[in-house]
Structure formats: C-alpha cells, structure tokens
Simulated assay, not measured.
Amino acid sequence: MTDKTVSGLTEAAEPPHYHGHRERLRQRFREAGAEALADYELIELVLFRAIPRRDVKPLAKDLLKRFGSFAEVVAAPAARLAEVEGMTPAAIVEVKVVQAAAVRFGRGRIARRPVLSSWSAVLDYCRTAMAFAEREQFRVLYLDKKNALIADELQGEGTVDHTPVYPREVVKRALELSSTALVLVHNHPSGDPTPSRADIEMTKAIADIARPLGVAVHDHIIVGRDGHVSFKGLKLI
C-alpha cells in the first residue's frame, strides 16, 4: 500500500525518515571521505545493505558500546556479533567481509616484497590480522633468501593467554618451503604486548633449532590492542 487517506484525500506515503539520512551519510562519505565520519557512522554504512528497512544508527551505537571501536566491531567473532540484538546473519556477513578485505589488503601490501624494507606494512598487517582476536594466535611469515614473503601461515590458536607452539614443526615447515628466514608473530588478547618468559623461551627454542639448518629468525612481533613490541627492538633476538 503506497498511499494513505487524510481527511478524504489521498496522498503518497512519505518514505521512512532514515532513507534521507542514508543518502546524506553516503554523500558525506563520497565528498569528505572516511575521516569525516564517526565510527558509528562507518558501521552504519556497512549495515545499510544488509538491513535495508530499518534505522541502523541505534544498532551501530550498540555495537560500539559492546566492543569499543570500529576495529573491534569488525574483528569480533561472528558468535559474539550475533549476541547483539538486531544483528541478522546478513549483517554479520557484511561486517566479516570488511574484516576479510582489510586482512587481504594488508597481506597484498607485503606479498612478494622484501619484508625488511616494508616493515611498517608488515606491522600494519599483523595488527589488522591479529590484534583484536579474542584468543591467542601464532603466525609465521616464511621468507626467501631475498627476504620476500613465501608464505604466511597461522600455526595455531589457543586460549586467551596461551597458544601451543612446536618449534621443530615451525622449522620443519621452513625447510619444506625452502625458506631461509622467519618472522614470528603472535597476539596478546589482554591488550598488553609485553613478552612473557614463555614467549622468550619459545623464541629462543625456535632460533636454536633453525640456526644450524641455515634458517634465521629475523624477529618475533607481539601485537595487542595497546600496540606492539619487537623482540629485535628489545634486543631479545
């Protein structure tokens, strides 16, 4: 029904108020760019296509309140997103597509390029891929003799404060790939990237096994919500 009767007269029903808001928001994004939008407004843009017939501003603000920032909303597990009232399966897919695109973009910036001369891009990629994960993950960047990336592999995922790492398996995989250098990466879901004693001992164990086989450990990076640390920068390697 597209018409309504008022005092015996027929007039076109007005579109919902949020239709004009959506177009204004899209226009501001086109003209001023993402920096002109608040986090909740960017989330609104993500949700528009998945939820076409509802004002999504309250939902966007609920997501921010729940998770803390745009990055943390995008990185939140699908199961936790589903706990927020109003998040449909389609909306969750839209959010996770944004995360996948960000990770893929970051990986593309370091693929087939000398990693050591693209260090800021490496750090950006590691933070995008892992900093907001709710469980510890351990990742290895395998490099060739020119320090270009051969493979980026997630070796394991553990609990909120521990991931099992098997040094011999890490080095075995390097030999399978004909890799001559490694960059180790893991995250601290607590947010604090300070290395633990176990982190230091595990790094030393991998380096001690790799060195006689001609495989160098260039660095071990720990990322968290509060930043990152480099073992090389701390002179732990």
Score class of each variant (00 low, 15 high):
residue 81 L to S: 03
residue 138 F to Q: 08
residue 214 G to E: 10
residue 117 S to Q: 13
residue 210 A to Y: 04
residue 210 A to M: 06
residue 71 A to H: 12
residue 227 G to E: 04
residue 154 L to P: 13
residue 167 P to Q: 04
residue 133 A to D: 15
residue 50 A to Q: 06
residue 75 A to H: 13
residue 209 I to F: 07
residue 44 E to S: 14
residue 8 G to Y: 11
residue 152 D to C: 13
residue 52 P to C: 08
residue 73 V to Q: 08
residue 130 M to L: 15
residue 175 L to N: 03
residue 161 D to I: 00
residue 66 R to I: 01
residue 5 T to P: 01
residue 121 A to G: 06
residue 179 S to R: 02
residue 12 A to V: 15
residue 60 A to Q: 09
residue 120 S to Y: 12
residue 140 V to D: 04
residue 36 A to V: 12
residue 134 E to Y: 02
residue 86 G to N: 06
residue 89 P to N: 02
residue 144 D to E: 07
residue 123 L to Q: 14
residue 118 S to A: 11
residue 118 S to V: 02
residue 222 I to K: 01
residue 182 L to I: 04
residue 132 F to D: 10
residue 74 V to R: 09
residue 171 V to Q: 05
residue 107 R to D: 08
residue 100 A to R: 15
residue 150 I to T: 09
residue 63 L to W: 07
residue 219 D to H: 02
residue 236 L to M: 13
residue 234 L to F: 09
residue 162 H to Q: 11
residue 8 G to R: 08
residue 20 G to M: 03
residue 2 T to N: 15
residue 55 D to R: 04
residue 182 L to K: 01
residue 173 R to Q: 14
residue 101 A to N: 13
residue 110 I to H: 02
residue 192 D to V: 08
residue 174 A to W: 05
residue 127 R to K: 14
residue 161 D to A: 12
residue 40 Y to W: 15
residue 138 F to E: 09
residue 21 H to M: 12
residue 65 K to R: 14
residue 206 I to G: 07
residue 109 R to E: 15
residue 158 G to H: 00
residue 142 Y to T: 01
residue 25 L to N: 04
residue 195 P to S: 10
residue 228 H to F: 15
residue 38 A to K: 13
residue 178 S to A: 13
residue 180 T to G: 11
residue 76 A to Q: 09
residue 83 E to L: 10
residue 99 Q to C: 03
residue 13 A to R: 14
residue 108 G to Y: 07
residue 177 L to G: 06
residue 18 Y to L: 02
residue 189 P to I: 00
residue 221 I to C: 08
residue 71 A to V: 05
residue 9 L to W: 06
residue 67 F to I: 07
residue 84 V to H: 08
residue 132 F to V: 00
residue 237 I to F: 15
residue 115 V to M: 09
residue 138 F to T: 12
residue 176 E to L: 12
residue 82 A to Q: 13
residue 182 L to Q: 01
